[in-house]
Simulated assay, not measured.
Amino acid sequence: MKSFIFSAIAVSLLVITVSCSCTKAKQTAPFKPISEKPGAPPKTWKEHWFEHDKTVNLVYYDDNVAFYYDGGVDKSVVWPFKTMSNVWSYVKKNYGAFGDSSRLYVIFHQNSYGGGHPASYFDASHDYRNTLDAGLGNWTSPTGEQIGMPVHEIGHIVCGASNGVQGAPSDAIWGDSKFMEIFNYDVYMNIGMQEEAAKVYKQMEDKDPYEDYPGRRYPGVRWFINWFYPIYDKYGKGELLNKYFKVIAANYPKKGKVFTRDRDMNLGEFVHFWSGAAGVSLKDQAKFAFGEYWTPAVEAEFAQAQVDFPNVKY
């Protein structure tokens, strides 16, 4: 079982490239204290994961998010507060609860730690909080990488902690980032950022299908254009994405609350589970999308998956 905490390097694979200032951020006055209310998140949080060891400060919270900035983040940057609150609100609405806490804990760094990583409420490493931790050269506007990276990391929380089960067995098929392409697109479409969604679609049209990315499988497959978007558009959009994780949680081998198996998910099983989410066989779409990789052996895997997981109906 791979660790749910992903490398900070992986996050740049989905987001649209934008120019980022690498100059040192202008230092501003210390954080103003936030009034304490019952159930408020802690005012500071001492990082204790990977190379992170900073004490970050609570700068905003509501029912959906608790935001922490390190000392390098420009304090005039406030757009992430409501934007990420809207993102997490939609995620909870579409995918359900992630543990007992209703909040996502967001940590932003500037000109210190680069890239991003997620953690879920299953992870002791981040004090059992649903967390995204991200660093860039600046956070000036809700576009491109600055919105794409945080949303991408939330997608990993969805992949690895949905429906009360820990683990991401589908990563063996789609690698680090292929699901995040459709996940980000769907989030943008549902929080009033249709222009950003259109940018993602255009980027996917132009994307090199032979790009390298962590855990890459099936070079040459146009994941978004030939697999995810067609089934997303035809079989329920965000509801389809949610149903897939419900199908996995209900049927994939697990021990207690952890997905456990002695081998990886195979492509035939993957298409079987997505067919269960869609309610129809997606074999023809898979043959088109995966092309040369849909071999007689994979055809046999698909048939065997129907035997091994008979409760997945379509």
Rank of each mutant, 00 (worst) to 15 (best):
A29G: 10
Q194V: 00
S3G: 15
P142D: 08
H48M: 06
G148I: 03
K283V: 08
S76N: 14
F179P: 04
P38Q: 02
T83W: 13
G135E: 04
E196H: 14
D212K: 00
E195W: 11
I191T: 01
Y244H: 14
W49N: 14
L132R: 01
I9M: 03
G291P: 09
D233S: 09
P142C: 01
Q146F: 07
C20K: 10
T295E: 13
T295P: 11
R217A: 15
P80E: 05
S76E: 13
V280E: 04
W294H: 13
T55Y: 10
I5R: 12
F183K: 07
D53M: 14
W139R: 01
S281W: 06
G148N: 08
T23L: 12
A278M: 05
D186R: 08
S170N: 09
N138D: 15
F309Q: 07
G115H: 09
K234I: 00
K254M: 07
A25I: 07
P42A: 00
V280H: 07
L13W: 03
F228K: 06
M84K: 03
H156Y: 06
Y218A: 13
P214L: 12
F288E: 08
N251F: 08
V165Q: 11
W174I: 15
A8D: 00
G39Y: 00
G167N: 12
S112Q: 13
K24M: 15
Y113D: 03
D171V: 10
G160Y: 04
V56D: 04
H126T: 09
W274D: 09
E47Y: 09
S162M: 08
L132D: 00
P150F: 02
S19G: 07
S85W: 08
F288W: 03
K287T: 01
K26E: 14
W49S: 14
Q285V: 04
W45P: 00
P230Y: 02
V307S: 07
F245N: 15
V221W: 00
V56R: 11
S177L: 09
S120A: 11
M189P: 01
F309P: 05
I5V: 15
Y113M: 14
F50P: 04
T140I: 07
K92H: 01
E301H: 11
G220L: 08
V271K: 10
N190D: 03
W294V: 12
M1D: 13
H109P: 02
H52F: 15
I147G: 02
L240M: 08
F290V: 10
Q166D: 05
K2F: 14
I107T: 06
K254R: 13
I157E: 00
P41R: 01
S89K: 13
K37C: 02
I5M: 15
F183T: 06
H126Y: 13
E36Q: 05
V106Y: 10
Y213M: 08
D133N: 10
D70R: 02
V258M: 10
V15P: 01
Y128R: 15
P118Q: 09
Q203R: 14
A124R: 12
H156E: 04
T23P: 01
G144V: 09
H152L: 02
N57E: 09
H126I: 04
V91R: 05
Y113V: 14
K246Q: 12
W45C: 00
F4R: 10
P30V: 13
E301Y: 11
